[in-house]
């Protein structure tokens, strides 16, 4: 027992454990995205509005953008979307991401541009930009749970939505747990580890066992509360000023399309 009561004189040796730092980094990125997706609702009042409108806006811009062959329409819609992003999201990494993807598209289209297909290339790049922006508007302003609930308007059965929602919840819970486990592994990796991959695989194994336990427990809890296989989702969306705004945007996009997009 004496060892516990005196200090170790310990100097770690070099060991190749970058993999841990990397794993933890990737994980924390993913988790912060998931958490962001779940926690969004509290952050902004405009965004607490009805996601259905944003969803329709997304679908209609994507469809109209892909239908149109007129550069003016595509350009105008892009400008409109960029303004919307700037107005409601207030972070520019959406625009950055869209720019990145658009530039990649541009690079890929260089051969076709050299062959004289300039206008088409520009239209395609603009379309990619607009599509990515409008998808980002939805995903970065709407918690995932709400996006799933939008499916209800499209007459998807409630039980299916329930399953999706719980999948999401489990992804969240399990990723949190495995993140913590990775952190624990990192904290206790204080020297040379000759069995890295064994450790990794036993973490993954434990994850499966835990997820089995968790889902079993949830099933018991549901049974205790009288779950009979029927599940009804009450939507609590109501129409607000923000929805009016999105509705106007939808109308404007359609007007653009019918006046100059065809």
């Amino acid at each position: 027992m004496d060892w516990l009561f005196k200090e170790d004189d310990y100097v770690p040796v070099k060991d190749n454990s970058r993999y841990l730092g990397k794993n933890i980094f990737i994980f924390s990125e993913i988790i912060s995205k998931i958490i962001n997706g779940v926690n969004l609702r509290q952050s902004n009042s405009i965004l607490s509005a009805n996601p259905l409108m944003r969803f329709i806006l997304l679908i209609s811009t994507i469809i109209l953008l892909s239908l149109s062959t007129k550069v003016t329409f595509v350009l105008l819609t892009d400008v409109l979307i960029v303004f919307t992003v700037l107005a409601i999201v207030k972070n520019n990494h959406i625009l950055k991401a869209a720019f990145t993807f658009a530039s990649f598209t541009l690079i890929m289209l260089i051969p076709s541009i050299l062959n004289g297909n300039k206008l088409n290339a520009i239209i395609i790049v603009l379309k990619v930009f607009g599509d990515i922006c409008s998808v980002s508007i939805l995903t970065s302003t709407t918690p995932w749970n709400d996006i799933i609930k939008v499916l209800k308007f499209f007459l998807v059965p409630d039980i299916f939505i329930f399953v999706l929602e719980n999948t999401l919840r489990f992804i969240y819970l399990l990723s949190n747990i495995s993140f913590e486990t990775l952190c624990a592994l990192k904290l206790r990796s204080i020297g040379k580890n000759n069995k890295k991959y064994t450790n990794m695989s036993s973490i993954i194994g434990n994850m499966f066992l835990k997820s089995k336990n968790m889902s079993e427990e949830m099933y018991y809890a549901m049974e205790c509360r009288g779950f009979t296989g029927e599940y009804e989702i009450k939507t609590r969306f109501h129409f607000s000023i923000a929805d009016l705004l999105f509705a106007t945007l939808i109308v404007v996009v359609f007007i653009f399309y019918f006046t100059m997009g065809r």
Binding site: Y10, I177, I190, S202, N206, K210
Partner: peptide, 28 residues
Amino acid sequence: MNNQIFSKKFHKKIGFVFQNSDSQLFCS
């Protein structure tokens, strides 16, 4: 903390018992 030797020495000196001990145990 990116310096491995440093970070290992640091983690050796400070031990953490998590709130949720479930996630702290990973061996067989």
